[in-house]
Structures are given as structure tokens and as C-alpha cells.
Design a binder for these strands. Structure first.
Length: 258
DNA sequence: ATGGCACTGAGACAGTGA
């Protein structure tokens, strides 16, 4: 099974990119973030015509997450969870589903704006709630994958210019400590399980020709529980759709299980 | 600071988010 994550920065604008990429990549499960549309605008029928069923938690303007699943793969309809249970939040950032026996979590972590701001404090609270929920979730679902836009670059090698970024949002010690705490639940960064080229990122600012300069960050991740990590045979970033016309600022990340 | 993209309410483009 190939599972992937992609922050599409508006599914309305990127719908055709998603459909084209599903065809190219041969993934079985695609977690989406930043749908930026309410549920009634979700292009369910078009994706179904492309061979994928979808589950989503959308909202107007901001956020919104979804999971696309290739036709024929078993999805437990009773397993769908939207948002972090017990964490009251109008922002739609989490959806989970049990797919072919694997607990798949699609998550759009808060950006945080800058350390010291109210948005950063929200990011910290959200990360606490996510970790506590996953801790219990992993006890009932030993096969679990957390995919999404984490808005955290875990290490300096995940940053094009660590000196310029030092202490800033997305790389601050507080955020990195949260990433470590997630790993300490028993999760493995699928990307780092394998030898990778240097300076391979997943997000590049639209401004200042950042993609052309490869001035990026690795902030989109796939964390796997021990069971899945043991069966993971590949993890790669696909930069191709970042080169298409009117691209998302993020590239998809893919993990192959089995 | 820099300054690209998507979105909103509005019916042009400034404000917000990331």
C-alpha cells in the first residue's frame, strides 16, 4: 500500500493537480490538507470518477483536511473521527480513518505565526492535545500512520539555511521538542528511515523564487508506528507537481508499506 | 524586511493567513 500526504493550498484551485497526481503516483491513500472549502463544495463526485472515495472535514476559507482512498480498499465507515476528541476547536485540522486495518491520520498542524504570539500558544496547546490523543489511539491501533503538514522542520538538515532560520517559527526549539515527543510515542519518521539526497524539502515559499533556489523546509511528514515502520520499504518526496503551472507551495510525500 | 498566492466581502482592492 502506498500512502501519501499533500498540502494542496485550496482544493478548488488544485483539483486537477490532485487528479493528475493520483494517476501519476499510483498511491492508494492520499491525505490532503488546506482544502480551504466547506464540505458542500468538496469535489467528491469528480474524485470518485477518478477512482477514489473521500472523507473530509472542511470549512470555509481556511484549513480543512481529507483522506482519499482508492476504490476497492476497505474503509471502516464507523472508524471516521473528525478533529481531536476532547479538544474543542472550530478549525478543521484532523481527520482519521481505519483503512485496510491501518489507522490513517491526516493532520494540518497550526502554523504558529511566531514564537511568543497567541497563535504560537495555540499551536503548543494543539500539539499537546494531538499527542495525548495519539497516545491512546496507538494502544487500540498498533498500525498507525500520522501524515500531514506538521509546520515543523525537525532538524537543521531539514532547513535550507539553518542560520537564517535559527529560533524562528517552524524551527524553534519548542516546536522541535514537540516533534520529538511525537516520535517518543513510538513513531518513526519514514523519510529518515532511508538514505536521502541532501536538501530535499517539501515546502518552498511562493516568494523570492524560493523553489528555483531550493530555499525550502521539510515540514510535511509521515510518522509510522513500529509495526508499519518495519514494513515500510520506501519514502520519497515528489517535487514534480511543485513545477506545474499554478502549483501548491507544498510537494507530496509518499511512503510505501509492504 | 522581503513580497507570491488564495481567500473574503464586495463589486475595487485592502486585509488576513501562511
Amino acid at each position: 500500500m502506498k500512502i501519501a500526504t499533500w498540502n494542496v493550498n485550496s482544493l478548488k484551485v488544485r483539483q486537477q493537480h490532485v487528479i493528475d497526481w493520483l494517476e501519476l503516483s499510483h498511491v492508494d491513500v492520499l491525505c490532503l490538507q488546506e482544502l480551504k472549502l466547506p464540505d458542500e463544495k468538496f469535489p467528491r463526485a469528480d474524485l470518485e470518477a477518478a477512482g477514489f472515495r473521500s472523507w473530509f472535514a472542511g470549512q470555509k476559507t481556511y484549513n480543512g483536511v481529507g483522506i482519499l482512498v482508492r476504490e476497492g480498499i476497505a474503509v471502516d465507515e464507523t472508524s471516521i473521527v473528525r478533529n481531536i476528541p476532547g479538544f474543542d476547536d472550530p478549525q478543521q485540522r484532523v481527520i482519521a480513518a481505519t483503512i485496510d486495518g491501518v489507522r490513517i491520520v491526516s493532520a494540518y498542524f497550526p502554523n504558529g505565526q511566531a514564537p511568543g504570539t497567541e497563535k504560537f500558544a495555540y499551536k503548543m496547546r494543539w500539539l499537546d492535545a494531538l499527542r495525548e490523543w495519539l497516545d491512546t489511539e496507538m494502544k487500540t491501533h498498533p498500525r498507525l500512520a500520522l501524515l500531514g503538514d506538521y509546520n515543523i522542520a525537525p532538524e537543521d538538515r531539514d532547513v535550507h539555511d539553518p542560520k537564517a532560520w535559527e529560533g524562528q517559527n517552524l524551527v524553534s526549539p519548542e516546536e522541535r521538542a514537540h516533534f520529538v515527543r511525537l516520535v517518543e510515542l513510538g513513531l518513526t519518521d519514514a523519510f529518515r528511515k532511508f538514505e536521502q539526497p541532501e536538501k530535499l524539502f517539501t515546502w518552498w515559499d511562493y516568494r523570492m523564487l524560493a523553489f528555483r533556489r531550493n530555499a525550502g523546509l521539510r515540514i510535511d511528514h509521515i510518522l509510522l508506528s513500529a509495526d508499519l515502520a518495519a514494513q515500510c520499504t520506501a519514502c520519497e518526496v515528489d517535487r514534480v507537481p511543485r513545477k506545474w503551472d499554478q502549483p501548491s507551495d507544498h510537494a507530496p510525500v509518499i511512503a510505501t508499506i509492504g
